[in-house]
């Protein structure tokens, strides 16, 4: 059992936690009655996906993706020329020294989009509360049902 934890759980701990958090968010978005609780669950679901993608860019022994003097004179010159200037034949930076920055930039966009959708959803919650006087889903569905029965 301990051996199994050491070889299976610990090296991929980010991915195990990603699954746990994603299922927590899915459960809240489906199973909770309160609309604000559903939105908290939706945000948790979103951060789980961000965790998956950023975990893909992690390397053992790597640092933050910023070029400085510790990566060598050639690397600094290469970046000073705009990265890939005319005459550069080889890529002078060792990619093992820093985490893969591509998933980071992609997830940066996802975070900003996520807070925008959260803001719109909270505004819709306020409109729903003004019309129905409650944020509990069963009560809202009951009121909609009575309106439809009257018509």
């Amino acid at each position: 059992m301990m051996e199994w934890i050491k070889t299976t759980i610990v090296p991929h701990f980010n991915f195990w936690i990603y699954v746990v958090i994603m299922m927590l968010g899915l459960w809240a978005a489906i199973g909770k009655n309160n609309l604000i609780k559903k939105l908290i669950g939706l945000s948790i679901f979103q951060t789980a996906i961000l965790l998956l993608y950023v975990s893909m860019g992690v390397k053992e022994g790597a640092s933050i993706p910023i070029v400085d003097e510790t990566m060598g004179e050639a690397a600094v010159d290469f970046m000073a020329q705009g990265g890939g200037a005319a005459g550069a034949t080889a890529f002078p930076i060792n990619p093992d020294l820093f985490a893969n920055p591509l998933p980071h930039v992609l997830m940066l966009t996802a975070i900003v989009v996520g807070v925008a959708t959260l803001g719109v959803a909270l505004a819709l919650c306020q409109v729903i509360f003004r019309d129905f006087g409650t944020l509990e889903e069963p009560e809202i569905l009951n009121q909609i049902q009575t309106i439809q029965d009257d018509v």
Partner: peptide
């Protein structure tokens, strides 16, 4: 995890 730009946005 080394994603500093994501960290300060978050």
């Amino acid at each position: 995890m080394g994603a500093v730009d994501v960290a300060f946005t978050e």
